[in-house]
Each structure stands twice: as structure tokens, then as C-alpha cells.
Design a protein around this nucleic acid. Structure first.
Lengths: 367, 367
DNA sequence: GCCTGCTGTGTGAGCGCTAACATCAGCGCA
DNA sequence: TGCGCTGATGTTAGCGCTCACACAGCAGGC
């Protein structure tokens, strides 16, 4: 009888006002308060009464008015997400995972994407969310400045402090962090290359103000140091294919200029797949073969990675998992605002994906 | 005196409840209604009074309670976005543009990303947004089923019909559409290849249930027909690099099997860049040179396109512009709900980006 | 018989805002 | 002088919900 036929009616069946709690109460022959109790799953409602109310709700196609609820509880069934650039693969995937997880537990998601990250932009973003009385906030804050801005904020809503979780930041701040273990990922690739027999591994880092970029540098250095391998001066890019291309040119020059005294690079760990992609082209144009002349490894495992020329060895980050974990962390903070047992750092392990862009060094040419 | 020092205080300065309109009214020595009038920019408030109110607002760090406002106006300052897969380059970029545009005009954005698109998922997504009393909805609905589901919906909120704009859909529906002209884009590439001297152009299409995929097929066919070129049977992929790789294998087989009677393909228009990327690798592995042996063109102009091997000729879609345009269209519908002069279709022109993956056919081998 | 305590339900107030109406001073004009 | 008009402001009544409390009914204990 209801919701039949082709037309799906959202909210109201006829042309009139949507049903209110009072309408439901009248139809079920109870008070509006009893309807509220049923909706909020309070105890102490007789099963028979509950059934009558539920029937009335179905019959009237009743939907609770969120605004009224928010007004009195001072908290909406909404979560806020502050993100930096939803076009980048990492943030986009995290956002996607976040949204899925939120909706499963009955929260809507309001997003604010900031163009530049600074104190003011961060304050504005968080204020906009506080205005909506969000129950909690997740900040995808991969840059140092974002974490600093966050620490200066006193995030208050109509109901006191708003729980906040940072994603992909570091642990220096006041807020719990959920992140993929960048350091471990960097060690993983570096050790993989070392294991293949390379004397050392070069590195193309991401922008220095990105925490992830720095963690990858640190992990790479540590792995090298542990094995007693020399630590070359890292090159720096900006995550873009263009910057990877430029780094490739530079490495190519070093390859050409190598001599017995100045050994040629035989392996590079590039801080993300897009830069690795640019580097691959730079090498290709110069007739430098990957992995025969030089091994190249990336980070992220973008969908394209498996189809580059050659298929790219890289580190896979499970962004969906990051989204889910941060959501459940946030939820525990919302439910128990003062609990001390909230983990301050949740780490998602990365995984090494070996493809064809890495191989043992070629021992024929120079030394 | 205010907002000084390092700590940015959001919403409230001290530990008490946030200020209400009544607090502001008291401090300014007026009624709360006058405060409301100032806030809503009503006429008939004396400049001196307005100043006093504004000062009080600043002094108390007052922020209007959205929930209360929404409750009485039956409409929130929020826009809803339904999107399919925020991980894909197109939807992600559109979402980004959308959010920027929305915030500039003072709207918050609530997103719902659906995993699979069908009537029920669509109805749920839209219902969730209606529950939040969004002022308008934008649906990024690139698939046929999405448009159909939309047409079956009667999108009603607490305040009657909610304005809705579809992005990247087609025009068969009840709702205005904003989209890049896929057909024109396909013609652009096809003609470019024909102009280079190719006898005909092969095509790798996207999934048949995607409207964009179909529009690209149509445009390609039309361009071929106009020039009297033969229309080869199109191959089909699923947007992924893997499917592009498989299409590449198939074309490679045709190249190998070509004879004077069965001419070899010399040019392919691939329906998106990711598939083109997969195809490039398939060709590379088989020693088929691009563009010497075969020209390859893509669609989208993803950030990687310029750094593929070889750099990819493709069609650039301005997703940011799509976002901005749909936002302003939606806004005009919100402001004038019954206006008949709302455009039913806004088309954003695509642009041909010529790089190195396309060239005149090599007239040496067969033929 | 009465008190106590529990369960199930109803009543009333009020969250912070806007919309509609009410009020009132000041002015022009017959 | 009185009338109506306008501009500036105040007053009142909700929007639809949840919270705190009231209260009835019934069991159990003494």
C-alpha cells in the first residue's frame, strides 16, 4: 500500500505539511512524548504501545524534524569534515571512506574544503561546522601548518568542546590522530630496494611542509642508517608529475656523470606515485631503462600504478580503513566526551606492492 | 581587544553558553526582533541602531543558531550533494568546485556518496538530504539509471519541492542539467585524428550505462560519418586502466593480423585517460610505437596525462566550471522557485589538448 | 492498611529564532 | 485640531522537538 508503484515519495505523500510528532501521537492514541520515547529507543515503553506508534509513523510517512531536535539537544546528527584538496587521491579516498562509515552509523556529513591552509582558514572552516552544531569534526590535515592551526583553536560549539580527530597529521598536537604509518611504509620500500642488492637508495621527497613527506624522509633515512648504507641528499618535489619529471632529469644527469669515484644511483624511492610517473617519463625519454638501469618505487598505489611503464612497485595505503577508523574514534569521543582511554594515535599499517619497476642492480657498467 | 593573541576562540569566549539573540538585544538596548532585522538585512533599521547591534554582536562573539532558524523557516542554509564515487577524477573535481562555490555564497554543503546507483539508493540519499532541510540538491549522476531514479523521485522537503540540479546527466529528465559537452569533445578528438590524415578512428567506449560514455560514442560516430569515414565496431571498457590494457591487447592483435584487405587501425580515441594509460602499456609491451604505429587520444585530461609515455593528447573538461555553473543554477531556482526562465541545460565546452600521442599515420608498412 | 518502589505514560516548559501583528512617534495636510 | 500615513521598534506566538517532572497503577513488604 505504501511506497508502491514507480513513484517514490520523499517526506510527504500528499501536498500538505509533513507529519509532526503530534500527528503521530494523535493517530496512535498516545502523547507526543511516548512517540519521542519510541524514536529514541528509551526503555519503559510497552511493546504494544511501541507497535502502535511505529504503525502510525509508517502510515504518516513521518520523519523527525532534525532542526527541532538539534535546537533542543544543541547537537545535530551531523559530522563535519575539513579537507584540503579533494582532488588528490589520498584525501579523496579518505573522504569517501569517512562518508560511508558515517552514514552507516546514522550521521550526515558536512564538508568544508579549504584552498590554502592557515590559521584563519582553519578557524573559519571549523567555525562554519560549529555553527551547524556538528557532533564531531574530522580534519584531514596533512600539513604541519594545519596541525599548528588546529592546536591554536579552541573548538567550541553550543555544547562545549566539540570532539575532533585529525587524519594524516602527526602526534604533536592536542588531538587524536589516525594515520597510515608513513615511516613504516618508507622503511618497507627502502629495505625492499636494499634487499635487492642496491648499495643505497635515493629519495625524492614531497613538500617539506607536509607531515607525510617528512615522515617518509625519516623512515627512508632510518632504514638506510640501520643497514649502514650511505644517505644521499634527497631531492624535493611537490607531489606533481611535473616535479617528478624534473627530479628524473636531475637523476639522469647524475647517472650520466657517474664515475668510479662518484657511483651512479641505482635505486630511487619517490615519495608518491604521481611524481614517480613523471620520473618514469624523464628516464624513458633519455633511454634510461627501468628497472635495468635504475629501480624506481613510489608511494600510494594509485589506480594507475599497476599500468605504468613499467608497472610501479609502491606502498599501498588503505584510505578506506583510515576513514573507518577515524570515524569510530570520533564516535567514541562523542559518546564518552571525558573518557581518558581514547587512543591518541591510531596507526594503519601500509603494505608493499612489488611490481616490475624494481630489480637487482645491473652490475655490468660502472663498477 | 577581540580575536587577539594566538588563541582563536570559536563561538564562545568564556566557559558559558554561547550568546543568544536576546543577549545581544539586551546589550544593545533593543528588542531581539531588531537584532533579527539587522542580521537579515531588513530595511527600516536606523543606522545608529544597526551600529549598536553590530557592536553588541561583535562584543559577545554572537553567532546565530542555525537550528532555530531552520526550524522556523523550514529551510537550512545548506545544500546537498549526491555523488557517485568521489574517488574518480571527474566527480572529485566537480565536488571540489561545487563546495567552493557554495561556501562563497554562504551555504554549507552536505554530501552523500552512494556506492551503487539504483532507485532505492537514490531515494535514500535524497531523503537523507531532505531530512536536513537542505535548500537545494545537486546530483552528480553520470549514469542512466541515476537519471531514471531521479525522474521517479518526488523530492519534497518540509517546504514543498526542493530545487534539484543534475550534473553530468542528460536532458531527458525533469531536472535541469549542467554538463560538459561530451559529444562536442568526442567530435573534437575524432576530427583532430581525421585531420592528421587517418582513414578512420577506432574507439574504446566507457560502460554503456554511463551517459557520458554514450555521448562520446555518439560524437565519435557523427564525426566519422560527416567525413565519410568508415565506423569500426567500438570496443568497450569500464574506465579502468585494466580494461584499457585489454582493449590495447585487442587492437594489437588487429594490428598484427592486418592485411591489404583488412587495414590496420592507425588511430584510437579512448573514452577516458585512465583506459588510454592502460592501452599505452599494452602497446609498449608489444613494441607498438605511439604515435608512430598508432595514435592514441584520451578524454578528461587527468593531471597525469601530460606525463604519460608519450604525453597524451586528450580532451580537457573544466570540472570547476561545471561546479560553479550548477551552483549558480541551483541558486536561481532557490531564489525564484517558480521561475520559468531557468535554463534546462547548461553546457560547458570542452577543449582539445594536443600532445605527443597523436600524429599523422605512418604510410610505410602495409597498404 | 500504608508506605515504598517500580513501570508506563502524560504534562508543561522552553531551546533560539522568525513572522505577523501591535505600537508609537513624527509628519504632512485638509 | 484631527486624520491618516510612514518609519522604527516592540510584543506575541509559534516552529517541533526533548527534558524534567508529575502522576497513575500495581506489586511487594511489613
Amino acid at each position: 500500500m505504501f511506497a508502491s508503484g514507480k513513484v517514490v515519495s520523499v517526506v510527504a505523500t500528499d501536498g500538505s505539511r509533513p507529519a509532526t510528532m503530534a500527528d503521530v501521537a494523535r493517530l496512535a492514541g498516545v502523547s507526543h512524548q511516548t512517540v519521542s520515547r519510541v524514536l529514541n529507543e528509551h526503555a519503559n515503553v510497552r511493546p504494544a504501545t511501541r507497535e502502535r506508534v511505529l504503525n502510525a509513523i509508517r502510515q504518516l510517512d513521518y520523519r523527525r524534524n532534525m532542526a527541532a531536535r538539534t535546537l533542543v539537544t544543541r547537537r545535530s546528527q551531523m559530522l563535519g569534515v575539513v579537507t584540503f584538496d579533494t582532488t588528490l587521491y589520498g584525501p579523496a579516498s579518505t573522504l569517501f571512506g569517512l562518508e560511508q562509515a558515517a552514514r552507516e552509523i546514522g550521521y550526515a556529513v558536512s564538508i568544508v574544503s579549504v584552498r590554502r591552509i592557515d590559521r584563519q582558514a582553519m578557524a573559519e572552516a571549523v567555525t562554519a561546522l560549529a555553527d551547524q552544531a556538528v557532533a564531531g569534526i574530522i580534519v584531514i590535515a596533512p600539513q604541519r601548518i594545519a596541525v599548528e592551526a588546529l592546536n591554536d583553536l579552541r573548538v567550541r560549539g553550543a555544547r562545549g568542546r566539540i570532539p575532533l580527530v585529525a587524519v594524516e597529521g602527526d602526534h604533536s598536537g592536542k588531538y587524536p590522530v589516525v594515520a597510515v604509518d608513513q615511516n613504516a611504509g618508507a622503511r618497507l620500500v627502502t629495505n625492499h630496494l636494499l634487499d635487492l642488492g642496491h648499495t643505497t637508495v635515493w629519495h625524492v621527497a614531497g613538500p617539506p611542509d607536509w607531515l607525510e613527506a617528512q615522515a617518509r624522509v625519516t623512515g627512508w633515512e632510518a632504514a638506510l642508517a640501520e643497514r649502514g648504507a650511505p644517505v644521499p641528499e634527497p631531492l624535493t618535489g611537490d607531489w606533481s608529475p611535473a616535479s617528478g619529471y624534473r627530479a628524473g632529469e636531475e637523476l639522469a644527469a647524475r647517472l650520466a656523470a657517474s664515475s668510479p669515484g662518484v657511483p651512479a644511483p641505482t635505486a630511487v624511492f619517490v615519495a608518491n606515485d604521481q611524481m614517480a610517473l613523471g620520473m618514469l617519463r624523464a628516464f624513458h625519454e633519455r633511454g634510461i631503462r627501468v628497472p635495468e638501469d635504475i629501480s624506481v618505487a613510489g608511494f600510494d598505489d594509485i589506480p594507475e600504478a599497476a599500468y605504468l611503464i613499467p608497472p610501479l612497485t609502491t606502498i599501498r595505503q588503505d584510505f578506506g580503513e583510515v576513514g573507518r577508523r577515524s570515524m569510530s574514534l570520533l564516535l567514541s569521543m562523542i559518546d564518552a566526551p571525558e573518557a581518558a582511554d581514547v587512543p591518541q594515535r591510531v596507526v594503519v599499517p601500509p603494505r608493499l606492492v612489488i611490481r616490475d619497476s624494481t630489480a637487482p642492480p645491473h652490475r655490468s657498467d660502472h663498477q
